[in-house]
Design a protein around this nucleic acid. Structure first.
Lengths: 204, 204
DNA sequence: GTCTATATGACGATAGAC
DNA sequence: GTCTATCGTCATATAGAC
C-alpha cells in the first residue's frame, strides 16, 4: 500500500477552498464598510455558511481580518515580483500606485487602513501582517532608493515619506469622491490620481 | 420695567457653553477613534456630564457628530475668510492645507471623513453639513480657478480633482505614520506633506 | 465540520427622581 | 436640566445536536 497524499489532500483542499472564499468575501466587505461596521453575520451570509462555521477557521473577527489583509499584501508582493526586471524604478512605483488604485476602484480592502480606524490597531498588533508589510516595504524601498539615485524621484525627499505617500494612495478618498461625481471613468480617475501623486498640483 | 436680555442670556450662555464643551470633546474623540468606535459614554465622560444630559442637547449620536463636523467646517471658513486679501491664490491653498494638517497633527477630527467610514454616510445625509461644505468648497474653488488662470496650479487638472486632493490631506494617513516613526517634528511633517501635495514625488 | 439556538456583553436611548 | 438606573437591541462568540 502506497501512502495516499491525494485523499488527505482532498479534504485539505476543501478546507482551503472554503477558507479562501471566506477571505475573499471579507476583503470585499472591508472595502465597502469599516471594520466596526462589518459583522461576522455579513461575512457568513456573503460566503453562504453559518456564522459558527467561520469560527472553525478563524478564532476571532480580528484574526479573520488580519488574515484577509495578509492575503492582500501577499497579492501585492506577487504582483511586484512579476514586474519585468528591465522596467525603470520610477515605472515600477507607478505600477504599484496603479495597482492600489485599481483595487480601490473595485471596492476591495484598502492596502493601508486609514488613520483612526479600529482595523489599524488590530493589524498593528498582528505579527503576520507586520511581516508581510515589511516584505513589501523592503522591495518598494529598494526601488525608491534607485529612483532617487537616478534622479527620477526627488532626491531630497526622505525615502520613508515617499513610501508612505505611495501607500496612502491605496485609501485615498479622492477616488470615491470622483467616482461618485460620475464625471470620470475609472481609468481616468486612476490616471488623474497617479498624476497628482507623482507630479503634484502645482504647474511645472 | 425693562425687558431683561441679560438674565435670559445667562441661562442661554450656560447652555451654549456646555454645548461647546460637548462639541469640542466630540471633535477630539473623533480624531482619535472612528465614529463606530466612539461611544456616547466616551463623550459624556470626556465632558464630565451624564450620558442622559447629552441627549438634552443632541437627540442622537448622528446629530451630535454632524454638529461637531459643521463646527469644524465653520472654523475653516472663518480661517479662510481671515486670510489677507493680497495673498496669492496658490498661497491661500497652501494655507488651507497647512491648516488641515496642523489640526490633523493634534488629533482633531478630520475635515474629510475617510472612505468607507460610517461617519461619511451620516454626514452625507445631513443638510447642514452639506451646506457648510458647499460654502467652503465655493471659496476654495474660486482660488483654484484663479491659480489655474495664473498658471500656478496646473491648468489641465480638473478643478474638482484639485479640490478633493486638497481636502484629502485632512485625513492623510501619512501624517500618523510619520508621527509614529518619531523621526520628524510636527512642523517638518507638515512641510513634507504640503510639499508632496503641491510638488509631487517626481523630480522636477 | 456544519448547523440552530443561545449566552454574554456593549451601546444607544429613555424613564423617572430630584 | 442633571442625574442614576434601566430597557431594547444587536453583535461576538459558544454550546450542543447532527
Amino acid at each position: 500500500m502506497q501512502p495516499q497524499p491525494p485523499k488527505v489532500s482532498f479534504k485539505e483542499q476543501m478546507h482551503q477552498a472554503r477558507e479562501d472564499a471566506i477571505l475573499r468575501s471579507t476583503c470585499q466587505l472591508l472595502g465597502v464598510k469599516a471594520f466596526d461596521a462589518m459583522t461576522m453575520d455579513d461575512v457568513a451570509n456573503a460566503v453562504g455558511i453559518a456564522k459558527a462555521s467561520l469560527y472553525k477557521h478563524f478564532c476571532s473577527k480580528e484574526e479573520l481580518c488580519s488574515a484577509a489583509m495578509v492575503k492582500i499584501l501577499d497579492g501585492v508582493q506577487a504582483y511586484l515580483a512579476g514586474l519585468p526586471p528591465e522596467m525603470q524604478p520610477l515605472e515600477k512605483l507607478h505600477a504599484l500606485v496603479r495597482w492600489s488604485l485599481q483595487h480601490l476602484m473595485t471596492n476591495e480592502m484598502p492596502l493601508l487602513p486609514s488613520r483612526n480606524s479600529t482595523l489599524r490597531a488590530v493589524l498593528m498588533a498582528n505579527q503576520g501582517y507586520l511581516d508581510s508589510l515589511e516584505a513589501v516595504s523592503h522591495q518598494v524601498g529598494e526601488w525608491i532608493a534607485q529612483a532617487q539615485a537616478q534622479g527620477t524621484i526627488h532626491p531630497t525627499l526622505p525615502p520613508v515619506v515617499v513610501l508612505y505617500t505611495l501607500y496612502a494612495r491605496a485609501c485615498d478618498p479622492v477616488v470615491s469622491f470622483l467616482k461618485e461625481s460620475g464625471q470620470y471613468s475609472d481609468a481616468e480617475i486612476v490616471d488623474l490620481v497617479v498624476r497628482t501623486c507623482f507630479d503634484g498640483l502645482a504647474a511645472r
